[in-house]
Every structure is written in C-alpha cells, then in structure tokens.
C-alpha cells in the first residue's frame, strides 16, 4: 500500500514518480508495471491495445466535441430542440461517439444546472472526454448536492440569489451535460467562433461560457 495522503489529494503531483527524467519509480509505478507484464504474459491483453486505448481516450474525445454541439445549438433552433429532446441522436449526428444515453439540460435566465456523480465518476465522455481530477474528488462529490452554491463559489461563480439550481446526480448510465446560455454580444459570431467561448466547466455547470472579451484575452 502506498503511504496515506490527504483524502483524494487534489492533484497527484505529490507522487514520487520521475518528473525530472530520473530513474526512481514509486512503489505503485512498479506494481502497475508488474501487473501489466503479467496480463500480457498471460495473454489477457495485447500491449498495443493498451496504447491504443490511451491514445483514443486521451486524444480523440474531449470538451471541444461538446463545444461544437453547444455552438450548433446556439445557432440552429431546430438542432437545439433536437438536442434537448434526444441528445443521444443529436450528438451522434455531428459525428461524435455514441454508446451512451445522453441528456442535455438547458440553463435559462432563472435556472442553472450542475452535473455531479456522487457515487463514482460518471461523466459525459462523448462530449467532454475524461473527467478532471476535481470532478472525481471527495470535495466535489460530497458537496455538490448539499451546498452547490458553495461549490460554485469555489469556481468563482456567484449566482444571483433566487436563481434556481438544479443538480443532476448521475447515478445510472444516463450522462448529463449542460447547455449553457449564449453570452450577450455574440450576435454576429459564427459557429466556430462561438465554440471557442464554450468552456468545459460551462458544460458541467461550474462555470459560464466566456464573453467575447474574455475569449480575446
């Protein structure tokens, strides 16, 4: 067992792995390598499969997929309606992966949506890729359902009092993501420019899209 650390350390930078090209490997690094050797030797997995999986999940999916979906919904009312009624099909229609039941939830001037998985780390991979560390961490999972306003303040987001906050705890295989409101001052912008305003955090609900001025910085 590795030594105990604070619960779900926010970043894993405290591992003694070889940051600087050194040769010292942590105990877990050695155990992981050992297990991989055994799995390959026993023929359960092909080493090239592992490399391909990493490449696929790290590089081929990510929040730019979702940004495209959101920008399309901002510019095409029929697409927006489709996305809100059948997100699984509407997302697949833009060429993004299927295989998960998707639901898009729309923010309005009076209602703000927030996504969490209190039980593990369920996250809308087809539109956002793999989850960030904080999403999987105890502070977020414990408090998003109890004190969402406090969580949003941790992200620097202070919603007006009275704004309805709808928290979606992803306890099944339905994957939720937020359709944020289109920022003001974006009337003449095309889909590609709008997509650059759509942040990952705005699709989880812990942030808002960038304004054109913020994006220009």
């Amino acid at each position: 067992m590795p030594p105990a650390r604070p619960p779900h350390a926010h970043h894993d930078h405290d591992h003694d792995h070889d940051h600087d090209g050194g040769t010292q490997l942590s105990e877990i690094d050695l155990r992981v390598r050992a297990l991989e050797s055994v799995l390959v030797e026993k023929g359960y997995v092909h080493p090239a499969t592992l490399d391909a999986l990493i490449e696929t999940y790290e590089k081929k999916i990510g929040p730019r997929n979702g940004a495209h979906v959101v920008a399309r919904a901002w510019t095409d009312p029929a697409y927006r309606e489709w996305l809100l009624s059948d997100a699984t099909a509407a997302i697949a229609a833009l060429g993004y992966p299927g295989g998960q039941s998707m639901v898009a939830v729309a923010n309005t001037p009076t209602e703000h949506n927030l996504i969490v998985c209190t039980l593990c780390s369920c996250y809308p991979w087809p539109v956002l890729g793999l989850p960030p560390v904080w999403y999987k961490s105890a502070p977020y999972r414990s408090r998003a359902v109890l004190d969402p306003r406090g969580v949003l303040k941790d992200f620097g987001l202070d919603l007006p009092p009275g704004t309805q906050i709808k928290v979606w705890d992803s306890t099944a295989e339905i994957r939720y993501f937020v359709l944020p409101e289109r920022p003001e001052g974006t009337d003449g912008m095309d889909e590609a420019a709008l997509a650059r305003l759509v942040t990952r955090d705005s699709m989880i609900g812990v942030g808002l899209p960038l304004t054109p001025a913020q994006a220009a910085q």
Partner: peptide, 16 residues
C-alpha cells in the same frame, strides 16, 4: 457514497 458528507474542504479547480 459521498453525497452530503462534510469536511473534505474546498474544491480545487484546474485549467481545462
């Protein structure tokens, strides 16, 4: 099963 537990401290955001 963490929903509603307390004492884990603030959420530490990252950069996308």
């Amino acid at each position: 099963d963490m929903g509603g537990m307390m004492g884990f401290g603030p959420v530490v955001p990252d950069a996308e």
